[in-house]
Write a protein that binds this DNA or RNA. Structure first.
Lengths: 376, 376
DNA sequence: TTGAAAGCGCTAACAC
DNA sequence: GTGTTAGCGCTTTCAA
């Protein structure tokens, strides 16, 4: 189909004719022009050049107030709004920050997104969201999406360590902020959760309640953030002078299902713990659910501590004791890191968010007495 | 600051010099060029014109295979990726769909986003997310964000009816798909939930269990989707030949807090219902929580039915009976509607998703006998 | 089969 | 104080 009707095409509208093009557009009787308007349209209607329109929009003082007002008037009448892709093209930056998440169905992340979006909105910035479902391929795809959209920075909350993929961002001058990797690199900052303190506090608290056999259900095997949490737990136990039993160190998947599975295994073990710490609340909820199903009472027989403090901690029964990680603080830290990291030739900085222990009803005194009685 | 150092600026790099500009960029020793690459860079390295590079990237057959391969080689070596804002500018469309949500912390929506994102990904499309927190100002702001980013369509799941704001989208040739308004307009399609059937099924089920005094806790007062749900409930009751008592028709806010508040009121009322239907699961969870706190047993004293079937229905105790709305189906319907609605001069279509009743443990036989005994 | 060049909307450097 | 114009990266005629 090469336009058989032809002749029309012969009229080339090149060169100087460009100027005339949008002049031909006339507003329909109903009101304003349905076509996307450009600055030229506005300029012509206001009897100025597009440069002046640009100046008015960007608040340049070098425009006579009278002219500016006329331009603003036309802008309002025409309901004109700028085309950000032109601006993006001009500057090579898009006023957009990317957020890469592992799993948007974990309530922790929507909460983060909500806070982060609010911060961006204040700065008139945009959010580009990508979720990875813990898949490496999706991570790489997400990073590419960020690159082609020319984002100004990436908040990378996907737990997996992806140095190589992230390098592509840094090479393209896109600062990156990772989650909880506890290390930085050129162009890559990190926001870590103070699990050392958090786990220490939780273990101390449980120890104070008389617990000595404490189990841990981590996140996905091999993922960096899982390791950090597990190691922090182990360190906390040692710090409290408690023995860590390998068989009580389980892995989950940061989801309810993983908690359920871990609880199943835990109940098979002879050395049953009197308390369980988990890598996140969903895991704890899964554990709770399985314990409940098996008729194990919480906290009478086993105490349970989650991590994150998602809203649902408070609706399960018993409400979960948990290590709260403030999503607002996290979002703020990310924004700070992103802004401070704009120069990707510099080494990134390390930021911290310290969790706080929120005590609810899933924890109680260790059941020594109870167990002894039963065993008789 | 008008460049006092002057002389350097005198060398204007205009006109034909443009061609030379990127030729000066040389790849650093480490490997590939850290500057964002353009097609010109690739073209020069491959010894072709940028038009040819474009053809190769877009799979035009009119390129000799040998040339094409050479170009692909350079693209790989240079890790080149296109700049979408240039494409957006060229076409006036961005390959992005906007999603406007009321509240991303309601697990229903992340679930939707997840499914919708997956569908977009298949089509190589992007997602622009905005949340409104039920505020009109935020809705308008979101719509503007969609406009300036030149989205190709908007999935508007924010419950409030915003005909006027949405008109701005349609005027700019952006098709809109609303949620559950049960009406369409030029350029505006709608995906509605079959609450008529759903509520009828739920009421029939409860009626079958002997319930006659059934209460309803809706969503935010005055919001269209709230009205639809309440009206569907009322119709369902009438259809089942049951009386609707005004005092048993309460409003909530689609959140846990609203359910809590509604339950408080409900327990004050003399005519205590034996069953409660709610506008969504969060509301039901709130009701459940308050009933639990007040020592009212579910389902022995009061049966409870939610709506949505979020994951947390299954972790509260007792697990919630609910009207399941499939997020996958919803996302698919939205995509279909968005694609079918591309011609904004046509009237939109009405689509439906029918909920299904999922029976868990929060519902049981009406407690007639129990109550009578107690009253003695 | 390939290249040259216009043009998408915007900004900024420069001219007046 | 305002206008003119190049140029951001890409696609797409049209010409060769």
């Amino acid at each position: 189909m090469k336009c058989p009707e032809g002749s029309l095409q012969v009229v080339r509208k090149h060169g100087k004719e460009r100027q005339k093009k949008s002049a031909k557009r006339s507003a329909p009787p109903g009101g304003w022009n349905a076509d996307a308007q450009s600055m030229r349209t506005i300029a012509q209607l206001a009897g100025v050049s597009s440069a002046t329109v640009s100046r008015v929009i960007n608040g340049s003082t070098a425009v006579r107030e009278e002219t500016a007002e006329r331009v603003r008037q036309v802008i309002r009448e025409q309901r004109y709004f700028p085309n950000t892709s032109a601006i993006t093209m001009k500057y090579g930056r898009s006023g957009t920050y990317g957020v890469i998440l592992p799993d948007i169905t974990n309530p922790f992340y929507p909460d983060f997104v909500r806070n982060f979006e609010a911060i961006l909105l204040e700065r008139n910035l945009e959010l580009l969201l990508a979720t990875t479902d813990f898949h490496t391929a999706r991570i790489q795809q997400s990073i590419r999406r960020m690159l082609v959209r020319r984002v100004d920075g990436v908040a990378f909350l996907s737990s997996e360590e992806e140095r190589d993929s992230l390098a592509a961002l840094v090479h393209n001058r896109v600062p990156v902020v990772t989650a909880d990797l506890q290390k930085t690199a050129v162009g890559v900052s990190d926001v870590a959760i103070g699990f050392a303190q958090g786990m220490a506090e939780a273990v101390r608290y449980l120890h104070g309640l008389g617990h000595r056999e404490i189990g841990f259900v981590g996140g996905n095997e091999g993922i960096t953030t899982s390791n950090v949490r597990r190691d922090s737990f182990v360190a906390a136990m040692q710090g409290a002078g408690l023995a860590v039993h390998e068989e009580l160190l389980l892995t989950g998947d940061y989801r309810i299902s993983g908690g359920v599975a871990a609880a199943e295994s835990l109940l098979q073990i002879k050395r049953r713990p009197t308390a369980i710490l988990t890598a996140n609340d969903l895991t704890a909820i899964g554990v709770l659910r399985e314990l409940h199903r098996r008729g194990v009472r919480v906290p009478e027989e086993i105490s349970l501590v989650g991590c994150d403090d998602i809203e649902y901690c408070d609706i399960v029964s018993p409400p979960l004791t948990t290590l709260r990680i403030s999503r607002l603080e996290l979002a703020q830290r990310y924004m700070t890191a992103l802004e401070a990291g704009r120069d990707v030739t510099q080494k990134g900085k390390q930021y911290w968010v310290v969790p706080t222990l929120v005590i609810r009803s899933s924890t109680g005194p260790a059941p020594k007495a109870v167990r002894k009685k039963r065993q008789k």
